[in-house]
């Protein structure tokens, strides 16, 4: 028995059974597992779509067509991937009902929505939420409340699992209308909010740290000067796109010179 309803002749979606959706969701969490430099998340995407293909019991030529269509270059933000996967399931069902007339539309949808979500996700998650949340966790740890910091990360973990489940359901419900959802100004407000929180938290942490350094009898003004001077040099190196670990290692010769004085 197929898990999704195929009898409707209009474009209303069928219903994904909870079990099928859970299976797709679990595989979509592993979207990055097979990341490769050539086609990025294509194997991850097909692994997420595979339970749906199996449950639909499509004839072999249709299975081949679905696989060929989606086993191409694919890259999106993993946290927002549910929207693309859900939307693709909906469009594939509509395409099946339309006898394959929407092949091109499905492929264009996959590429463009994936790109849009990759860009939004990079801005919102990697450049906004991640630094803000980790700086907040660091601040809490610095204040002697590391468990609160861990709880904050735990809350994000649960929240993003829910978002990925919800994304799948919303994507499936909206289909092509995801484009309208992407154009809502709320995304950009959220990005601005998260990024400003990161900047504020970075500044607050630095201010509190400098005062603590100046007050410490074992550190004092010289340590503040070192911290500021070497920090500026590190900033320049980070701007050259060097990884943080390497910049930290490059601080050693500087520290050796200072220690010799």
């Amino acid at each position: 028995m197929p898990a999704a309803d195929t009898s409707a002749s209009d474009s209303r979606p069928g219903r994904l059974s909870a079990w099928l959706m859970a299976e797709i969701w679990a595989w979509s969490l592993a979207l990055q597992a097979s990341w490769n430099p050539q086609r990025m998340q294509n194997l991850g995407l097909m692994a997420a779509l595979a339970p749906w293909v199996r449950h639909r019991r499509l004839p072999l030529p249709n299975v081949r067509r679905v696989c060929r269509r989606h086993y191409e270059y694919f890259n999106t933000n993993p946290y927002l991937a549910g929207f693309v996967v859900g939307g693709l399931l909906r469009l594939e069902e509509e395409n099946e009902r339309a006898g394959g007339r929407l092949n091109r539309q499905v492929a264009v949808f996959r590429g463009s929505v994936a790109r849009a979500l990759a860009s939004l996700g990079d801005q919102l998650i990697w450049l906004g939420l991640q630094p803000a949340l980790l700086l907040a966790a660091c601040g809490l740890a610095w204040l002697g409340r590391p468990w609160l910091g861990l709880a904050l990360v735990g809350a994000f973990a649960l929240g993003q699992l829910w978002l990925r489940w919800r994304g799948l359901a919303v994507g499936y419900r909206l289909g092509l209308d995801i484009v309208d959802m992407l154009s809502k100004p709320g995304w950009h407000r959220a990005i601005r909010g998260c990024q400003r929180a990161s900047m504020l938290l970075a500044g607050t942490l630095a201010g509190a740290y400098l005062v603590a350094l100046a007050k410490s009898p074992a550190a004092g003004g010289a340590a503040v000067a070192w911290s500021l001077g070497a920090g500026a040099a590190c900033g320049y190196l980070l701007h050259r796109r060097l990884p943080g670990e390497l910049v930290f290692l490059l601080g050693l010769p500087l520290a050796l010179i200072l220690a010799s004085l």
Partner: peptide, 26 residues
């Protein structure tokens, strides 16, 4: 001794590096 004194300076780099990273990223 000189190397251990230099090592003692290194952890002080971490907070300014975080600020520099946020400023650079955004």
């Amino acid at each position: 001794d000189r190397a251990t004194r230099a090592c003692a300076l290194l952890p002080l780099l971490a907070p300014p590096m975080a600020v520099a990273a946020v400023g650079d990223l955004l």
